[in-house]
């Protein structure tokens, strides 16, 4: 099945119906395995058990960027190839990406509490993730600002690509800003190099979360396609019956009521 075949939303929906249960099962198995391995992993000699938050935090941080990458490709699909499913993919991915980014922030801040003594430190990495989160929210706001999804699609695609180009610049600027100000914190996120005992559960968790994203994304795309169908059905319904009402019938009701 090629990308062109998938351009037909009906065929895509059929594919999703077959694929979704399998994706869900794979995700569940991988997540279970990942969590089990994470639980088995030894405590860090410096950070203690808090290090295990990393097994959740790092996959979320990875996905926060990966999803923007997916959305950028989808945006190219909207602007360059005009693939009909591209803007569906981009729109469906944004809230999921925002959720992963939020979880990355949340877990980062929970990890930071015992490390820094505060829930938030303007650490270069966390700050970059926070800016990414703001960009996700802006993108969602843009999608929500316009009722007609096809009209919003182009604006959102341009914004996504501009964001993709800007992200490295933002990352660099924030790093520079952070070193310039010599923050008080001694310990940084993911500072020490990773031991093998941590690497394997981390990798499994990363893959599990990526599958989680795929599952959610495919389901969200299906919902978005269905939502658009409902919308066009409603528009057809609005158009359909209005001429059925004969003036005579209407006047009969009025005369009785006035």
């Amino acid at each position: 099945m090629t990308l062109i075949d998938l351009a037909n939303p009906t065929r895509f929906l059929a594919l999703v119906a077959r694929l979704l249960p399998w994706l869900a099962v794979v995700t569940a198995v991988l997540l279970a395995a990942g969590l089990y391995l994470s639980a088995l992993a030894p405590d860090d000699y410096q950070q203690g058990a808090t290090v295990k938050i990393m097994f959740i935090h790092v996959p979320n941080a990875w996905l926060s960027m990966f999803v923007w990458g997916i959305m950028s490709v989808a945006s190219l699909g909207t602007l360059v190839w005009r693939h009909p499913l591209a803007d569906v993919a981009a729109k469906a991915a944004a809230p999921i990406g925002a959720s992963f980014t939020f979880l990355a922030l949340l877990t980062g801040s929970l990890w930071g509490r015992p490390m820094w003594g505060t829930y938030w430190e303007w650490d270069a990495r966390l700050t970059s993730v926070l800016i990414l989160f703001l960009m996700y929210l802006g993108l969602i706001a843009l999608w929500r600002a316009v009722e007609d999804p096809t009209r919003a699609a182009r604006a959102a695609a341009v914004l996504t690509l501009v964001g993709a180009i800007n992200l490295p610049i933002i990352k660099f600027s924030v790093d520079w800003w952070n070193t310039l100000h010599q923050p008080a914190s001694v310990m940084r996120m993911g500072g020490p190099t990773l031991d093998k005992a941590f690497l394997i559960p981390l990798l499994v968790m990363a893959i599990a979360f990526t599958f989680l994203f795929l599952t959610l994304h495919v389901a969200a795309m299906r919902n978005e396609i269905l939502r658009r169908r409902v919308r066009s059905l409603q528009m057809m319904q609005a158009r359909s019956v209005s001429s059925d009402v004969s003036p005579g019938g209407a006047s009969g009701q009025i005369a009785g009521a006035v």
Partner: peptide, 18 residues
């Protein structure tokens, strides 16, 4: 969202000194 963005901008102007 605007509120959030404005507040996040401030540390970049005055520095991350808690």
């Amino acid at each position: 969202l605007f509120f959030l963005t404005v507040v996040v901008l401030m540390p970049f102007a005055v520095g991350p000194d808690l």
